[in-house]
Amino acid sequence: MTTLTARPGPPATRRRPRDERPAWEEKPTAAGQAAKGVTILVVLAVVLVPLYAIVLTSFSTQASINIAGGLVLVPHGLTVEAYHQIFTNQLVLHSLLVSTGVTVVGTAVSMVVTVLCSYGLSRPGSYGHRTILMTLVVTMFFSGGIVPTFLLVSTLGGYGQYWSLILPSAVSVFNILVMRAFFASTTPELIDAARMDGAGEWRILWRVVLPTSRAVTAVIALFYAVGYWNSFFNALLYLPDNGKWPMQMVIYTYTLQANSLPGSGVTNTGVYAGHQQIAALSLQMAVVSLTLLPIVVVYPFVQRHFTKGMLLGAIKG
């Protein structure tokens, strides 16, 4: 959001020398160091312990889940039974495919649209770019709301169709503003040199601007991919048939609302079915773990670009 504010770049400041305490700074007190250390450990634990417990439970045997009475914190017996069940469960397996497909196709569509539009608006003095930019920015401050959007997509025949998870949310104006700011800061000499050589705008975008904007491209692609992977409300709105659901809908329905998962061997989730419900816990946690997995795998590769990709674009804007 900070992109919206135009700020002059910060003056040439002396950045803090990394990893070194300046000579003028007083030595930290022992109590201060300890308090800082404990706070950081608590923060780390609050994030990591639940993730650890969920993944461990997904690999735990029924016996160890019974001992724990729920999420397993101390491993007793490990098994991949839950994952075996997932890959024989049509509903879960299909939702995995739907989520993957929507994420891949959606990210591709969004990136093409975003890259083109960002570049199209990034050349100073080009015809109509202010008007177009205004048209985009207005949508950040006002929208028609849930009901008119739902009625429109339904009228267009999107009800029950996969494209309803992609097209209505394919463009993020925020992402366009960030990327445009980045493209606009590409060295003008490079672009002018390419133009002298007879390159058109398409070639300049492909050969000059994109290769020098890898950081922002990676970060924006991650944002879009995560958005599609996490897509939940659009599926709730437009996909009534559980045979078409993505992962998030499966988790919502069978884990959060504790409906019994078809094909999981659990048919009753009433009061007396306590043990059976626990039986499904490792399966549920396996689905949750699989949903976390791609994020945790891709994340480290993109994470180092966050500061560069986001902040240069967003703060200096």
Binding site: T114, S126, G145, P148, L152, L167, I176
Partner: peptide
């Protein structure tokens, strides 16, 4: 100017069309 910048303008078309359809039409839908 339109002739000169036609490539740039064409590039913005997909995003503008998507926003017109899925954001501006619902605005009228109020």
């Amino acid at each position: 100017r339109i002739r000169r910048d036609r490539s740039l303008l064409i590039m913005t078309v997909p995003a503008v069309v998507l926003l017109l359809v899925f954001t501006y039409v619902p605005m009228l839908g109020v």
